[in-house]
């Protein structure tokens, strides 16, 4: 089956109020072309799941698309804190659930395995257990010892970005895998952008690097630089200069309007043009 579609066709299939899992990790391999399209859409009240979030969650919060965020971490790593996330947390503008890196994985895994929860000792003794109303401390039925039940996370949609894909929806991930496979398997519908579409014969040569299996994917989009400004190893590194501009823009309303006009409300082709085009990006970001 040919599952190719456009970025806008992916966004059309995302329901307002939907539970959306986003792959990647902070400033690495985020599906930013898809996220930007969602950010400029009229979708509302999205509920976002990220294990380790970064510019993805921050942009969706900055453009007012979000009702709730389930996260283990949201930040820009070496660049500092995520500005819209920080503001939204401090003004309590939207709902937040603080999870942890493994518990997000466990929640997705519970959804995959069709069980209501996964048990773990993680979060015992911490305030995460106190503030996260989704978790329940229960008794191990065998030993009566305390243990935490992490409920299944059942995303309506997963969005991920990979290095290569074929038109059937198999995906190759060459750098760190992050939690993309769990997102893809747990979601009802997984949409994947890729740096380059390959023939199925070419794709199969990647062996175990074919991590996204076509039975789990609903749509595939060819979007070169689709993770920018986050990095996509080994194709390109994180655009730290762009993220610094993003952080500066986020500090004033006027700066943010300008950023939106230049980099969010434009389509992916124009977005790349506004960075000086692919050649300019190659010279700055290819490793």
């Amino acid at each position: 089956m040919d599952k190719r579609m456009s970025i806008d066709e992916v966004v059309d299939r995302i329901p307002s109020g939907g539970l959306i899992a986003i792959g990647g990790s902070s400033i690495s391999r985020k599906p930013m072309a898809l996220v930007r399209a969602l950010a400029r859409s009229d979708k509302r009240d999205l509920r976002i799941i990220v294990d380790v979030g970064g510019p993805d969650v921050d942009l969706l919060l900055g453009t007012g698309r979000v009702a709730e965020v389930i996260y283990a971490f949201v930040g820009f790593e070496v660049l500092g804190l995520a500005p819209h996330f920080r503001r939204a947390r401090q003004t309590q503008a939207v709902q937040f659930q603080e999870w942890t890196e493994y518990t997000v994985m466990a929640g997705l895994d519970a959804a995959i395995k069709r069980v209501p929860f996964m048990p773990t000792h993680a979060t015992l003794g911490t305030d995460v257990l106190r503030v996260n109303a989704a978790f329940k401390e229960i008794r191990d039925p065998f030993t009566e010892q305390p243990i935490v039940a992490v409920p299944a996370l059942k995303p309506d949609v997963a969005l991920i970005h990979v290095n290569y894909a074929d038109i059937q929806g198999n995906g190759v991930i060459l750098g760190d895998g992050h939690v993309d496979v769990l997102c893809a398997k747990a979601a009802k519908d997984t949409y994947m952008s890729c740096e380059r579409l390959l023939s199925s014969e070419e794709l199969q040569r990647f062996g175990r690097d074919v991590q996204i299996l076509r039975v789990y994917s609903r749509g595939v989009v060819e979007a070169p630089w689709g993770a920018h400004p986050t990095g996509c190893a080994p194709d390109y590194r994180t655009d730290v200069r762009h993220l610094q501009d993003y952080l500066r823009a986020s500090s004033s309303e006027e700066g943010w309007r300008q950023y939106e006009t230049e980099f969010v409300t434009v389509d992916h082709r124009q977005y790349l043009e506004n960075h000086g085009g692919a050649e300019e990006l190659v010279s700055r970001l290819k490793v």
Binding site: V52, V74, T103
Partner: peptide, 8 residues
């Protein structure tokens, strides 16, 4: 930033 993997 959030608890990340420290509880684990």
């Amino acid at each position: 930033v959030g608890a990340r993997g420290i509880p684990e």
